[in-house]
């Protein structure tokens, strides 16, 4: 990662995060250059979802040290909506249900927020683009008038997350457990939606517990996260190894080297 210029990567350095008294991320460093797909795998409770939320700026978590740079700019002091407008996107593991707000209105507000002040979104163009992306994700057009995620199945919620990814075209996307709750058909559709978004202008971080998703979204790099730290990094074959051997060997690592020197 040293050869990638700071200007085109999302880089996390020595990040430490607490919620209340408990430290959840304990000195994590990671860089996701544009054009690459990275996967973080790890057991439950390793801090994967916390990392995703901290990147997006969730107010419940306290960053005690470290930094997060997006294309060289420190985003730690930015509000969640500012981070998003600068090009960061989080696909939620558990997307919120927003009663009374239709997908069409919700996405229009999000797209409008990215336009220069005083400029109005053109409705015809907007809908043309929205329908194109929905077709890609095999979503029925009637979804546009449904309330965001309300009464959606697990698969519908995840498709809706990827629809937003497709509409907002972020520079960096973090996908938190996007495979959970999906049957194999839905998984393929969602993975296709993500693969279409791969490209030189975009860095993608896929967070997952299981290797299954990585059969469809083939990562360039795989990282193992245990107890709030990246304990091993490798190529896509690492995912297969984890599937076979599980995380136990890494759990041992964490007990023997509980507090490494991170000076």
């Amino acid at each position: 990662m040293f050869c990638v210029p700071q200007m085109s990567q999302l880089s996390i350095t020595n990040l430490r995060v607490s919620i209340g008294e408990q430290e959840i991320i304990r000195g994590l460093s990671l860089a996701i250059p544009k054009g690459e797909v990275h996967a973080i795998m790890g057991p439950n409770g390793s801090g994967k979802s916390t990392l995703a939320k901290v990147l997006a700026g969730h107010p419940d978590y306290k960053v005690t040290s470290g930094e997060i740079l997006m294309d060289g700019e420190n985003i730690m002091e930015l509000a969640p909506d500012e981070r998003a407008r600068k090009g960061l996107f989080l696909a939620f593991q558990y997307p919120s249900e927003i009663p009374g707000v239709t997908i069409a209105n919700f996405l229009r507000a999000a797209v409008q927020a990215r336009m220069p002040e005083g400029e109005e979104l053109e409705a015809t163009d907007y809908y043309a683009r929205l329908y194109e992306k929905m077709d890609l994700l095999e979503m029925d057009r009637s979804f546009t008038s449904r309330s965001v995620n309300e009464g959606f199945s697990g698969g519908e919620k995840k498709r809706n997350e990827i629809l937003q990814l497709a509409m907002l075209e972020p520079k960096y996307a973090v996908l938190d457990e996007t495979d959970s709750g999906l049957d194999i058909d839905a998984l393929k559709v969602v993975a296709h939606g993500v693969n279409v978004m791969r490209g030189p202008g975009r860095g993608i971080l896929v967070i997952t517990h299981y290797q299954r998703l990585l059969d469809y979204i083939i990562p360039d790099h795989v990282h193992v996260m245990v107890q709030g730290r990246i304990v091993r990094s490798g190529g896509k074959e690492l995912a297969l190894e984890l599937e076979e051997k599980g995380y136990e060997s890494y759990e041992e690592v964490k007990t023997t080297a509980r507090e490494p020197a991170l000076a």
Binding site: V101, A110, L168
Partner: peptide, 25 residues
Amino acid sequence: EMFYLLSRGIPAAIAKQLLVAGFLN
């Protein structure tokens, strides 16, 4: 819900409006 809207780049004031309108809708 608020965080979800913010995370899509929707400014806080507009996010609030959307949620209130949704509540009434």
